[in-house]
Design a protein around this nucleic acid. Structure first.
Lengths: 241, 241
DNA sequence: TGATGAAAAATTGTATACAATCAAATTTGC
DNA sequence: GCAAATTTGATTGTATACAATTTTTCATCA
């Protein structure tokens, strides 16, 4: 009890507090779909449509959409409905500035308390990331890359920071979907491996510096000028899983 | 559009995204009540009871409670209902560590862009704060003290940081309700005035340093050992205003 | 008397129905 | 033929009813 976020259940791996019952399933599912870019920014999330897909009533769907709205992944407009968020250029800047402030600190904290099991888990994360890249699944790769950052926050074992990082990572995923300019998404792996080295040496200062550079590098990989327009079918994007 | 948080309307002065319709009223009302310590940590917020007080149906009340849960002010336990959050000692530590990282940066950003109208507004905040202290209204004074910090974040004009600060301030209010040990709440005013000086000189570095010291000082004002038990009537606490 | 168990009451989880609002298509007027 | 106004349709906002779960109460037994 006295949960880190507002809801009773312990935070497992997600940005938003854990709503009751089946709302959670829908949250997680939509969350994954958005992070893996199966749902494009700006896409409409009709309550009826989502409800029919998941076999749930609007009551539950509404709760899920509101939860996602609180996480910044969904934008609810009065009397118009819910849409996948389309972060502005301004918001993109701010999100990465926040990451550049918070994540290095989190990396330092993690390095100071990290243990062998943690390192093992991080390595598994990296392996999965590479596998996705080799398989050419960009969406999955990006999602796993974010999961790596979140795993670090979990190791630091600071719920408040962890929650912030989760939210920022989620929003970053949308931002990257909109503004990423580099062809290769693999540039990240290098920084992630460097982090692993700092972790294995329990070198907090190094981890902090590497993470800071890493975030700045990610930020510089964005093309914050144009806007891409995207919108497609909902049922299709949600069909698998 | 492309709202800073998940909801369409612009964030005015509150922690949570802005839910539609009357849900917002209930959110703001409960939020104020919690921040002014009219609702004690641990107090049960029954859907029926809250709904009857505000003349709204459970549907709306539920949405409000969920929004507050996302802000960390309310704790929802499955099949048991909503309670005013009772931050753990651990959480208290984390919240103030986060504030010590984020708020100094925000203060620096604010100092770099601050203008005469902003300073005027901050001074009004300080006046109101003093008035509340003189009137002996501790709850109101604390609430206004938090509003001062939020006002700084608004001046910095960074929505992402602003959102974080709001959330942290709200939770701090609960933490102070539980763990504050100093008799005087006036100690803050000194730091706030020092900040005003730095702002008027547009000295970002000074503002950052002062704010950092201020947060650490606040943190040290907590007695993070014992737990106070509190619980009383709901309708009574919500009767005024 | 205290603990244990079942029944009853209260509270939340979910579904559905109705009202209000908004978007689009149709009609009407010029 | 084009623009404005109106009607139609679809979607969200809200209330209420029912189901599931928990908490309380109270009777029973060691």
């Amino acid at each position: 009890m006295t949960a880190p976020n507002g809801f009773g259940a312990a935070a497992t791996h997600d940005t938003f507090p854990l709503p009751p019952g089946r709302t959670l399933d829908i949250c997680l599912n939509l969350h994954s779909a958005i992070l893996e870019h199966r749902l494009s920014p700006g896409m409409k999330l009709s309550e009826d449509e989502v409800g029919e897909i998941y076999g749930a009533s609007r009551t539950v769907v509404r709760a899920a959409l509101q939860a996602l709205a609180h996480s910044g992944l969904v934008n609810i407009e009065r009397n118009r409905g819910a849409f996948v968020s389309r972060p502005s250029i301004r918001e993109a800047q701010e999100v990465f500035e926040a990451r550049a402030l918070i994540e290095p600190r989190v990396a330092r904290l993690a390095a100071e308390v990290i243990g062998a099991p943690h390192i093992k888990r991080l390595n598994r994360h990296l392996d999965a990331e590479h596998a996705a890249i080799d398989a050419g699944d960009k969406g999955k790769a990006l999602s796993l890359s974010g999961a790596f950052h979140i795993a670090i926050a979990d190791i630091a074992d600071q719920q408040v920071f962890s929650q912030m990082v989760r939210s920022l990572i989620s929003r970053s995923s949308l931002i990257i979907a909109l503004y990423w300019k580099r062809a290769d998404a693999t540039c990240e792996s290098h920084a992630h491996h460097a982090l692993m080295k700092a972790f294995s040496e329990k070198d907090g200062s190094a981890a902090e510096e590497i993470q800071k550079s890493h975030i700045i590098d990610l930020h510089s990989g964005l093309d914050l000028r144009e806007k891409k327009e995207t919108a497609s079918s909902l049922a299709q994007a949600l069909s698998r899983d």
